[in-house]
Nucleic acid binder design. Structure first.
Lengths: 190, 190
DNA sequence: TGCTAAACTTACTTACGTGTAAGTTAGGTA
DNA sequence: TACCTAACTTACACGTAAGTAAGTTTAGCA
């Protein structure tokens, strides 16, 4: 079984950039193939349909996120540092080519996605919310974070805001995420 | 000059529903024409290009929003009631067919929009933020609202969160907006 | 050396979406 | 009554996107 190229990974890499830059309907196999210097059908060879590619993308997000969460848990990273990593990443990515978060790129047009993609995306969303909820709860217990209401609702509020802010940043061409994150910092940190 | 039909308005009405349901790239002239029982070219007659239609849509949002803001100002509607109208509308619409807000429908794919549409959308965004900022400032002066930081940043945080929450609601098929709005209510109202 | 399978390319098909040009209908007007 | 114009329909052109079938190359193995 020859293992000649890493084209498949390159396809996913490029698809990820395109997805977070232009949304799922905003790029085509043509975009990927021309960028990678291969033919359209080569992309179809690795991912027969665009749904397959989309599913692979989301599953990679899930795997990566789960791995990072586990790593932070294992290393007992302080909750405030975990939260900062979350904010900082959004602030950083919005200035580069990955302007949208995966959820912000896919959720708006979720009706057009295949059922497997929708299911996987819901799983991804729950994963992030569960992590954020845990971080917030822990932070309140440790008295390093302060907020009203349930950690669950607060997590939903924060992640929704970051998602929306990334989209606004793209339009206004200014880092709205940084301002929104700062607002949360001022409210949360004590 | 015969004024026979209100087709043009019907087109805009239907386009608005489709836009807020599926995003700008998520619907076609075909969708509109078949729904209204007319031909594709009839839509082109009223709106030569899809950009023209998109621009008309955004300009209607701007006009409507401005009118509502002015009306609330004239009637001296209490700031808390204005804020409630904002939250309630998002909660209500997300349960119907207008799941997305205009900004949440258009901003994610703003690169694909024409320059006039982008400019108009920025104007719409600023209009909403300016109104929300004013409401928040007034509310703090009147001691009916409580929040940290600048009213401007708080406005950005709130509108981003509602925008993101509407998208999440669509995916999770549950009213995330209601929970996010409740979280803000608990934090803001005093 | 010859075979096999992975990893492609070539060359299509099909469908759809935007857009246009030319013809048709039906009110209102001179 | 004849005409004019708004509001369409008919019938296209054109580009692009997804997807497929069949042929080609290349690495590794028997």
């Amino acid at each position: 079984m020859p293992r000649l190229s890493n084209t498949k990974e390159k396809i996913v890499d490029r698809a990820r950039e395109l997805l977070q830059h232009r949304g799922f309907d905003g790029f085509s196999y043509r975009d990927i193939s021309t960028d990678l210097g291969i033919k359209n059908a080569a992309v179809h060879y690795h991912f027969p349909s665009k749904d397959d590619l989309g599913l692979a993308l989301i599953e990679r997000y899930v795997d990566e996120t789960r791995a990072e969460i586990d790593a932070a848990r294992q290393a007992r990273v302080p909750v405030r540092d975990q939260l900062e990593t979350y904010f900082k990443r959004a602030q950083f990515e919005v200035e580069g080519v990955w302007s949208l978060c995966p959820m912000g790129a896919l959720a708006p047009s979720c009706e057009t996605l295949s059922q497997p993609m929708q299911t996987a995306l819901v799983r991804f969303g729950k994963l992030v919310i569960e992590w954020l909820t845990e971080v917030l709860e822990q932070g309140r217990r440790d008295a390093v974070l302060d907020f009203e209401g349930s950690a669950d609702d607060k997590a939903l509020q924060i992640s929704s805001a970051i998602q929306g802010a990334r989209q606004m940043s793209k339009l206004h061409q200014s880092n709205v995420v940084a301002r929104v994150a700062d607002q949360f910092r001022g409210e949360l940190y004590r």
